[in-house]
């Protein structure tokens, strides 16, 4: 049986100001996995996601989404940026931020209507943020802001989800709630790619892993490649992590 790849990245090199931060990355993400990208700060994890999504132009290499360029497949991909990347003092409400997730399917000029609003309210409900729908976003706690971002990705109703550190600064309950939603997505046949920092929880949460530090160190099923050897190669120091058999 041939594997279908959700994302294929070939020879990707990305540079800021002519200084490469990602070198010659080859990566194939099979459809239907719940994958995490791990690597130290500054490893280029966010950059990798951004260049897959066409937010940053790579200086070399190609990216395809289900075999086609990203530009043709936008509607299949949802994105949760790192929380610190936006201005939370922006004058808008939680519901409005979630509605932004529907803009992609609307395209230029068309405005969101009742249908989009209904979908957004449902997404808010799913992440347990419905009571906060009219809150100004700066008055939400960090974990609540993260949930709003998750709801915004859910409302995009995509096939592939990219999430940059969705567990950043959330408490244990919220983390469980988020991972349950991600697992549900995988059950529905979606592909989920998450930037993750907590190595302890990798075996429990994910079934696929990519080690990244400027270069790709390894990628594959967690049970096969999540070991001290790869961790040491990625982080440079010797890691002892108990891998569940």
């Amino acid at each position: 049986m041939e594997t279908n790849y959700a994302i294929t990245v070939d020879d990707l090199t990305v540079a800021y100001n002519y200084k490469p931060v990602l070198w010659d990355i080859d990566l194939a993400i099979p459809e239907g996995v719940l994958m995490c990208i791990v690597g130290p700060n500054g490893a280029g994890k966010s950059t990798l996601i951004k260049s897959i999504l066409g937010i940053i132009k790579p200086i070399a290499g190609t990216v395809s989404v289900f075999g086609k360029p990203y530009k043709k497949q936008r509607s299949l991909v949802a994105y949760v940026p790192q929380k610190g990347s936006v201005d939370w003092d922006f004058p808008t409400t939680a519901l409005d931020v979630v509605m932004m997730g529907t803009y992609g399917s609307l395209g230029w000029i068309k405005r969101p209507g009742q249908k989009e609003k209904k979908a957004s309210l449902e997404a808010l409900e799913k992440v347990g943020m419905l009571p906060f729908k009219n809150r100004q976003i700066s008055q939400l706690s960090g974990g609540q802001q993260q949930r709003i971002f998750l709801a915004r990705a859910l409302v995009q109703n995509a096939s592939i989800y990219f999430m940059d550190e969705p567990f950043q600064g959330v408490d244990a309950t919220t983390e469980k709630a988020i991972i349950n939603i991600l697992k549900e997505l995988r059950k529905a046949g979606k592909t989920v790619v998450v930037v993750h920092h907590d190595l302890q929880t990798v075996p429990e949460y994910f079934d696929w892993v990519t080690f990244l530090n400027v270069k790709k160190i390894a990628t594959g099923p967690v049970k096969d490649i999540f070991n001290d050897d790869n961790l040491t190669k990625t982080y440079g120091i010797n890691y002892k992590v108990s891998v569940q058999e």
């Binding site: 991909v77 940026p81 990347s85 201005d87 932004m100 609307l106 395209g107």
Partner: peptide, 21 residues
């Protein structure tokens, strides 16, 4: 005409780019 595009690109340029605006 472009209210929604202006809003999303001002609030979250990354998302705007990913959505194609």
């Amino acid at each position: 005409t472009f209210f929604k595009e202006l809003k999303v690109s001002t609030f979250d340029a990354g998302l705007a780019a990913a959505l194609g605006f």
